[in-house]
Design a protein around this nucleic acid. Sequence first.
DNA 1: CCCACTTATGCTCCTTTTGAGCATTATTAA
DNA 2: TTAATAATGCTCAAAAGGAGCATAAGTGGG
Lengths: 299, 299
Amino acid sequence: MAGQAIKIELNAVIVAVAGSDPQILIDPSLALPSGPFETGHRTLEQGLRNWAKSKSDQPLGYVEQLYTFADRDRTTGSQRVVSIGYLALVRATPTTEMIWSPWYRHFPWEDHRKGVPPVIAKTIMPGLNAWKAAAPDAAAKRDRAQRITVAFPKDMRHWNEELVLQRYELLWEAGLADETMKGGKAKSAGLGVAMAHDHRRIVATAMARLRAKIKYRPVVFELMPDAFTLLQLQTTVEALAGLRLHKQNFRRLIEGQGLVEETGAMTTGAAGRPAQLFAFRREVFAERAAIGTKLPRSS
Amino acid sequence: MAGQAIKIELNAVIVAVAGSDPQILIDPSLALPSGPFETGHRTLEQGLRNWAKSKSDQPLGYVEQLYTFADRDRTTGSQRVVSIGYLALVRATPTTEMIWSPWYRHFPWEDHRKGVPPVIAKTIMPGLNAWKAAAPDAAAKRDRAQRITVAFPKDMRHWNEELVLQRYELLWEAGLADETMKGGKAKSAGLGVAMAHDHRRIVATAMARLRAKIKYRPVVFELMPDAFTLLQLQTTVEALAGLRLHKQNFRRLIEGQGLVEETGAMTTGAAGRPAQLFAFRREVFAERAAIGTKLPRSS
DNA sequence: CCCACTTATGCTCCTTTTGAGCATTATTAA
DNA sequence: TTAATAATGCTCAAAAGGAGCATAAGTGGG
């Protein structure tokens, strides 16, 4: 049984998008906002919301539980910490003590909007190949080779933007992303800015979840203002996915799904033809619970 | 801070499929197998695996963390319990003290393989409509109406088999699925066999997750024997999804994805033309990390 | 006012994927 | 031999997805 005391901690990955940068809220010591689990709350989520409102001044919008971590070799100190990770989406607002940190600062290899990031060829692949070569036996070597191919495919058309966590864990195992801090400064062999404890892993989990989710649930709108152009929407999705999208087809997709409605207003002042301003149609929740099935149903 | 003691408990929804019945492992008191979190383990999942191996004699195959629950009004007794739910898939084997319980016994409204279950029209809709009518104000009424329509659509072609949890919570809120036990026997207004504590909710979470997952990850194979016919595979998927599938298109889907390979052997003795026996191609993990994107990627 | 540039928006074409169902084949049971 | 039961092959049409051309409507600078 548990002789050791267990502490439960809530960690929140609070995401906002500013222009074309997804950002996460961290404190100056590169740690995620976190707090103890208060037994007074009715549910975990409620506890998180209350705590977030009191601590930062971010009232959380969309909230989703991510994962509960309790790895012994990842937590610091003597006390066993069980950390429950949450993903929260908010519309960006200024903060006091906290910092909005662009998430690609911590994951530079995940941003493929301007082509394949050079760090992959320059640092990551050599590092991973060395790690593969150092495998203890042939089976391990095959396994490592396979994981590398899946996470960082040779042909970048096969890049799967959802595999954020697998990639991070791969880099971590290969010793390319350890979170050792150098006097408060990030290290990590140049592979992005490290974070406190295992927080970068939690962020990776959040990124993966969010990148997957935007494809089948209209969660992006939680990050948008009330009225927005389709380009702004596309830019936000591109920012999250780390990919460029086809403009006309993106429009067709969004409009075809009836996710938005025209507000009647137009943009003004910017370069180019003025764009219509759209608003999210909240009714979609009522209409289409069915999102996408992949099974060949009959009858 | 936490003045109250917190206990961490692992709950496992262990699923197997026997013929055309998905089953979960429970004990005679209708509780999921569960055990305390031992601080000695390296990770939560490892703890679960060790515990499962010692307690039941099920060596767990595929394991996935589901959700961490800590609702105050759902836990019993004075001590606050945080329960971490897991989904595990195993190939059915006999058990000692535990019982394999068909999951549709607890969720009769979820099995649409033989048409819409009568319990929906007979009990559920009247109950939900009464609950809707009893809404305190107009806004709440609209909200309830909407949730009902999404979970139990008028037109059953819009039935979304993934919404297991939403449906269960709806029924629970409407008082149609409360877990009050009558002398160890199930009650619940005829709506399926109740379970201990909030375990039916955990099972609902597991069902929802599994139904979603079989669509984009080859997890069904964890439930299949080494060699199987495509019909057996289809039957298993249908059992999980609670839906009938189109046979030829199912075959096309599976073969087209290269998920299986012929073993060369055929079935014998059964009625009808003998079927080929197939085996899961484990190489698919190596080949196709990319499963399905829904974003209109460019370049 | 005209021109270069920029973004918005409409549409077409072609390829793939899905949905539905017909037809044929190979066994067992009567 | 016939009926019943499954397996398997194939076709056809509809829907969804990928790529790109063409046109419209602004801004900014001569």
